[in-house]
């Protein structure tokens, strides 16, 4: 009886999902962990809430911060028993980023990733994604300045039309 009562009381996974929409990426706060596409599964295991996340880049220092953010957000809603599991495969890709997330990036001044994940089938040097459009003025005339920007997931570009430098969230 006791178990059943607890089962009825506990929030639905949809409710949990709605709460997680309020957990921002610590480095790009306009993106939530859901927008990023790293929350792969949400379920109850008895009284424990299990959140399965897939790390973005292997060395991304934000992952620890994100786990702490998820715990804090759920605790605010009274869910204290949280287990965060990490799943490596399939590897995270920017293809999992939501359309809303991509739009938010653009509004924040970061060019969102092109449609397709990075092509790992060959090493041709020029096989990279086409140059992203400038998130400020929309011009397609942009030039790569550096393959890495302020974080591993971004590259630095400059727009030839408006002259502004901008970050590009790399297709991954």
């Amino acid at each position: 009886m006791n178990t059943q009562a607890r089962t009825l009381d506990r929030p639905s996974t949809q409710q949990l999902r709605d709460w997680l929409a309020g957990v921002p990426d610590p480095e790009i706060p306009v993106l939530s962990v859901l927008d990023l596409g790293i929350v792969r599964d949400l379920r109850w295991d008895g009284a424990s809430c299990v959140v399965t996340i897939t790390p973005t880049y292997s060395g991304c220092p934000a992952m620890q911060e994100i786990s702490a953010g998820i715990r804090a957000e759920l605790a605010q809603h009274g869910v204290d028993d949280v287990r965060i599991e990490t799943r490596l495969a399939p590897a995270w890709t920017t293809d999992w980023m939501t359309p809303a997330g991509k739009a938010a990036l653009k509004g924040y001044g970061i060019a969102p990733p092109g449609e397709k994940a990075i092509d790992i089938s060959g090493l041709s040097r020029r096989a990279g994604a086409p140059a992203p459009a400038c998130p400020h003025c929309g011009s397609p005339r942009t030039r790569l300045i550096s393959q890495f920007g302020s974080t591993a997931c971004k590259a630095l570009y400059r727009c030839a039309a408006c002259g502004e430098p901008f970050d590009y969230f790399k297709a991954h």
């Binding site: 490596l88 495969a89 590897a91 092509d119 790992i120 090493l123 393959q147």
Partner: peptide, 18 residues
């Protein structure tokens, strides 16, 4: 799993160093 994950990063590294 480790290899598939690392490969995406390393593809980028290899293009950059070339």
């Amino acid at each position: 799993a480790i290899a598939a994950k690392s490969l995406k990063e390393v593809t980028y590294h290899a293009r950059r160093s070339a």
